[in-house]
Write a protein that binds this DNA or RNA. Structure first.
Length: 280
DNA sequence: GCCCAGGGATGCG
DNA sequence: CGCATCCATGGG
């Protein structure tokens, strides 16, 4: 279990605990953060948290302590999850030790949909820049930073705005998707089981099986999903000694193998392969 | 200058 | 169905 102390404007976590902000932010789940002078600034909705290490503790400095306690999933015991995964497949030990202090964020659903529509066939630094452009041109000025704009504001933009945000051919999809999202009641969607919910998400323009899985994992906290991108495809070839190219079949196989641990396994493998580039 | 990036939409057989 | 092709644009 993660030990931490909640105070009025900060959360303190022991420096050697299962919380590594670099791993958390660089494992490809979030594109709305900046690094400045050994501090990380993470943005979600209209909120911000500043994360740094004072030598003894990791400090999460924010006006929204409860929000980021949930956002960083501080109540979940990752040591149990990691042990379960290794028990299922000892070959994953290397990847889990590599990213042993990452955590899966509980992000805002709307922001997750937008960022992962942008993510399709794109690279992380470019996705990050597009998200920054959207915040800084449509968000509310909060002094130190800009909030992420709400659906009402985003849905009023035309294709040319998203071209300027460097979405490329995804600009058209984004305009369509925003019109669709306006009509969605997310509270009703939350009740659906993962399979039905995925079918709903795939209706959105620019959302296919992989992007839907990412939205389910990072936005809806569903762990019975296994997003398969180019990195997971590579690591799948390494792990199971196959040249399978059909990503749907890979996903089915991985889901069968890992069940409700799938979302976690996927994240350890993605981070390991993309960061180290090594064979597992 | 080339290949790749957290893939999806479309069309064709 | 499954499969091939096209899609903008910057990173490495």
């Amino acid at each position: 279990m993660l030990n931490y102390i909640k105070e009025k404007n900060q959360i303190k976590i022991l420096s050697n605990a299962e919380f590594d902000i670099e791993q958390i932010l660089n494992c490809g789940q979030i594109f709305t953060f900046e690094k400045k002078d050994d501090c990380y600034y993470v943005f979600s909705k209209d909120k911000m948290v500043k994360v740094f290490d004072d030598g003894k503790n990791i400090i999460l400095e924010t006006d929204s302590v409860d929000y980021f306690e949930n956002f960083f999933d501080l109540k979940t015991d990752y040591s149990l999850i990691k042990a379960d995964i290794i028990k299922k497949n000892p070959n994953l030990k290397k990847a889990i030790n590599f990213g042993s202090n990452l955590r899966i964020l509980k992000q805002d659903i709307f922001e997750t949909i937008i960022s992962f529509i942008i993510s399709a066939n794109n690279n992380i630094s470019r996705i990050t820049k597009s998200m920054k452009y959207i915040r800084e041109n449509l968000g509310e000025n909060k002094g130190e930073y800009f909030s992420f704009p709400k659906i009402e504001k985003l849905s009023k933009q035309d294709e040319s705005f998203f071209i300027k945000a460097n979405l490329g051919y995804r600009a058209k999809q984004m305009v369509k998707a925003l019109a669709q999202i306006e009509k969605i009641d997310f509270e009703k969607l939350k009740i659906l089981d993962t399979k039905l919910l995925k079918n709903e998400l795939i209706q959105l323009s620019g959302v296919g099986p992989k992007v839907a899985d990412c939205i389910l994992l990072f936005g809806f906290s569903r762990f019975d999903v296994f997003p398969v991108d180019t990195w997971i495809s590579k690591v799948y070839h390494d792990l199971f000694n196959t040249k399978q190219t059909n990503r749907n079949l890979m996903r089915e196989d991985l889901l069968n193998k890992f069940g409700n641990l799938s979302g976690y396994v996927q994240q350890y493998l993605f981070f390991y392969k993309r960061s180290s580039k090594e064979k597992i």
